[in-house]
Structures are given as structure tokens and as C-alpha cells.
Write a protein that binds this DNA or RNA. Sequence first.
RNA 1: GCGCCCGUAGCUCAACCGGAUAGAGCAUCCGCCUUCUAAGCGGACGGUUGCAGGUUCGAGUCCUGCCGGGCGCGCCA
Length: 602
Amino acid sequence: MSDLKSVLGEAVEAAFAAIGAPPELGRVTPSDRPDLADFQSNGALAAAKRLGKNPREIATAVAAQLAGDPRLASVEIAGPGFINLKLGDAALSDRSNVIAADPRAGAETVAHARKVIVDYGGPNVAKPMHVGHLRASIIGESIKRLYRFRGDEVIGDAHFGDWGYQMGLLIGAVMDENPEIRAFVEVLNELPEPLGDTEFFLADDPRATVFDTVSLADLDRLYPEAAAKGKSDTDYRDRARKITAALQTKQPGYYALWQRFRDVTRVALERDFHALGVDFDWWKGESDVEHLITPMVAELDAKGLLVDDQGARIIRVAKEGDKRELPPLLVVSSEGSAMYGTTDLATILDRKQAFGPDLVIYCVDQRQADHFEIVFRAAYQAGYAAEGQLEHIGFGTMNGTDGKPFKTREGGVLKLNDMIEMTRTKARERLHEAGLGEDLTPGEFEDIAGKVAVAALKFADLQNFRGTSYVFDLDRFTSFEGKTGPYLLYQAVRVKSLLRRASDEGAQAGPVTVSEPAERDLVLTLDAFDAALTEAYDKKAPNALAEHAYRLSQAFSKFYAACPIMQSEPATKASRLTLAATTLRQLELALDLLGISTPERM
RNA sequence: GCGCCCGUAGCUCAACCGGAUAGAGCAUCCGCCUUCUAAGCGGACGGUUGCAGGUUCGAGUCCUGCCGGGCGCGCCA
């Protein structure tokens, strides 16, 4: 660690050690009182308790140790025993030159890289994505990027919901609607052997083209109807279950039709996710672990983990010291089928075999906390993962302005695409109002509107701590003022414009010399990047990074208002151009880790 | 009933192993564009951190109880 906080921390820790106090108490933090100091150490207060001495006495002794440090402009004792540190301009200048020369803008990497899987997004076949998928995607994408940036080997897995009862429902519904499809499915189903890959039959059979007529719109339309009918109509439900069971044995007709569902859905989903700046490394589906379930159940049985209970086969996961009795993991239902948790367990096994992760992060709604606790305990018992390698990162729900889960005006669930389009529309309106974009090509204008919309959506989400629910107010975040994504983009674009102008005029960047208060603040903020990253990484909390990006933008904006650049003396101009360029690099890095990309102009 | 999470300014949210005067944005009010993008900058106003106890030199943060809200609790995923 070479940021000022760490470097000063080492100096203060040494001073603590020199006076016989526990060195770890010398920890340094950014000052709570910027009017008094840049950094502070509260360690004298804690040391006083341990050593039985007056805290101010200890602080004074520590300050005496630090007195000669050339980096410090002042060391003062305040209040009950706070040690206030103020840096000299030279130390700040040195630090900013180091950050300026660093392609990572002051960000460190982890000492020991791990293999990490981030499980997020969770789209399903046939069910259109709704606002609930937004948080999983936004937060998961940010965590994936953050971990990768810190040096871990990371895989983002969409964990595609492509298997189960809803597939049986949908197959039945499509066959009901289209007799040609029904006929061909039945022909295929009569084939002698259930084969996994039906491509062989479909390749040169002209009748197979009927499958191509099934569109995502058809699935979107048919699924809600079928789901509703399945709830009220027993016969309909039974048929769907039979089809589901047959699909799971890969009966060729059903399997071929299912493949069409899966493919047509995935293409659309990938396009939608990409527009949001969300891209997965793996699109492993529940179907991909289906073949592991039977042997896994046998193995669990052999290990003595399975217990018969009320006709089902379960794994008990309750532990000594639990505050309540956690329900068991239901592995095989009384009807003999695999359950939600069974698939999750098989997925853990599959990931262990395919990648051997040190850590799997599940970025899923907080309401599933119990479910994951149960699955994880079962996985630990089975030896599919080591204790602590599986972690559920829950997030709160996105609510409407009434405080209840977000709904459309008509009371339905808002589709994700509709929400994104609404936001883009607002972004276009706002750009027009501001008189921007008139000299742009339509393509460029659309690109900017898209980036503004994504920034607005993502920053509105990521500035909140993930664990709490938050109110999503379209009118509020589309106002594009204050602490918003578009504000951050605006600051980045302003720097780009400045640097373009400097380039046109042939102005060169040069070494940084800090003197103005706004410059000091900007450098101190630049220096805090690594601490923000560390916090976001350790707590799996991108809001720490979002906060840093905002503070950096604000610090730059103040600097920009207070310190003329192009009109200043050559050395000052060179110094300030370096500060501007460094700010831009760090801001774009931070925004990229939030999944937000910046346009060249706006 | 049991369990988990939450309660901070009019609104939406922050707050670094417990630390000084609890911070931002929005809203309201007052200033700043003949000079680098005003989607900006400066300033003002706004708080018994749900309530009551406890631990501590020090509590929004830890402990206990209560009030209020959200969510979960084996054969859906």
C-alpha cells in the first residue's frame, strides 16, 4: 500500500511502538475535521485505556516522535487526544505525480489472487426480465468487475433458469396453439432412443423449420396464460408435469422444442444485458447440471447424508447453537423429482469440477437468504465446498414511490426493457432541453442518450448500500441534477473537452505542484481511491466506490471552478493539465467498475 | 408463533475495527456565465439518529426491552 493513509499509518505506528504503545493503534484515517487536518489517528484514546495513562500525554509523546517528518506540515493534539496530521504541499505533489504516472491511478492489487465465480442476473427462459432483475445484474456486474480489477480470476455466470416445470407448461402451450409443431414434436417423440442432441434429426428435415417460427414474443405471451391455467386446472398441471418429466429424460420432440425456446431467449437476453453494460462469461443453465443429479443423489446417499422424511429425501442442516430450526434441504421430493435446492447443489458440484473456485458469490435477492444458508450447509457437509467459500450477497427490493415493490401504473410488473426505454426517452428529452447534441449525428446522439440512461439507472442503484431496499423514483433520477450518473458523465466529458482543447493548442502536461486549497482537496481525493476500492471489495459493497466517484467528480468540479487552467502560467498550466488527466483516468476506471461507460462529448 | 433485515433532515440516501460539530443530493431561499461545457460553483435553511434503559472517558454504531415497517419459514423457482 502506498497511499497516504497507509504511509502515514506506518509512521504513526512506528511512533506508537517507540513510546511503548501497541503499534496497531496507530491506524490513520481521513480527518473528520477537514478544517483542522488531512488525516487523524485516534489511537492515543485506546492506548490510554490499555496503558492506564492520560490520552493527551500519549498523543503528545507520539507527536514528538513525528515532529521531524518532512512530509508533515503540522502535527497537533486536539480534543481528548486526537492526533491531527496535515501534509505539506510537497508530499501531496509527490503523491499526485505517482498517481499520474500509474495506469491504475493509484489502485493496488490483492496480495493473493483467488478464483472467484460471481453468480448473478438469474434470467429465465420465457419469463421476461422485470425490474427485480435490474439490481441483480447491476450489482453483480459491478462486483465481478471490481474483483477482476483487484487481480482475482473471475467468472461471471448468468445462472440461466432454463429447466423445470415452467418448461413443461410452455411446451404444452405452444403445442396447443400450433398443430404443425404438435405434429412434428410427436413424430420426434416416437424416435426409438431418447437422444440428447436432436440436431441430428433436425438438420435435414424440412419439417423442423416450424420450430423457427416460435418467437420470444410468443413465449412472453403464452407463459403467463399457461402459468395461470396450471394453477387452476388440475389436468392441465398434470400434463405439464408429465411433459416436464419427459423433457428431463430428453425425449427428442420435447427436447428439440425446448432447445428452440432456450436459444431464442438467450439471444434476446444477451442483447438486452449488453445494452445495459452487463456481459457474462458463462451462460450455464440449470439444464447443464441435470446429468449430475442422479449420481450426486447416489453419492449423498452413500455418504449417509440423505434421510427419508415424509416420503421425501432430505439433508438435515440444523446446527448446535442455531437460534431456530432451519428447515432441511429437500433433495428428492415425495414424487421423486429434484428440487430447486438440488439443482443449486449440483451447480456447486459442477463449478468445483469445472473451475475449482476459492469463492462463489451469489448476488441474489435478500429474501433467499435462508435458502442459500441451507444449500451452503448441505454443500459443506457433502464436501463440495470448504466452509466459507460460498457467500450469498443479498440485496433489498426496488420499491416504487409508495414504498411497495415497483409496479406499473396498471399494477403489473414492469418489464426491464420498458424501464430502460423509459429512461432513454427521458435522456433524449433532457439532452434536447439542454440544447445539446444538435451538432451530432443521429447515431452519436443515440449512443449518448443510451449512456446517459444507463449511467442514471446504475448510479441511482449503486449509490445505495446493496442490503437495503430503496425507492426507485423515475422522475427523480431523470432530473439529472446533483448526485446522479449523468452528473458524473458530465464531469468526465468536461475534462475530455478541456484536454482536447489543450491538445489543439499544443499545451503540454507536466509535473504537479500543489498549492491551492482546491488542488489539495483534489489530490487527497485521488489518493483515497485505493481505500474506496478496498472497502468495496471487502464488503462486496459497490456503493463505497460510487461514493468515491461522486466525491472525485465534486472535487474536480470545485477545482475547475476555482483554478483556471488554460489561461495560467506555463508551469501551472502543465501541472493542472496533469491533475485533470489523472482525474479523468481515475474517474473512468471507477465508472467502468460500476459498469458505466462515458461518451466523448455530450 | 419463530427467525432475519430495516427505522437517521420535509423527501431519497450515506456515515471507514465505537471518536471531535452525524454528512450528501433533492426541495426552499440568496448569490455567480463578455474567459476552459451553468447537467456547474458558492452560501443559507433544515436533526432528541423510532422510544426507554444499559455498557463505555466517548454510542447512529455494541447489549436488553418495547413500538413501527419489510421479508422468510420442505415437496414452486
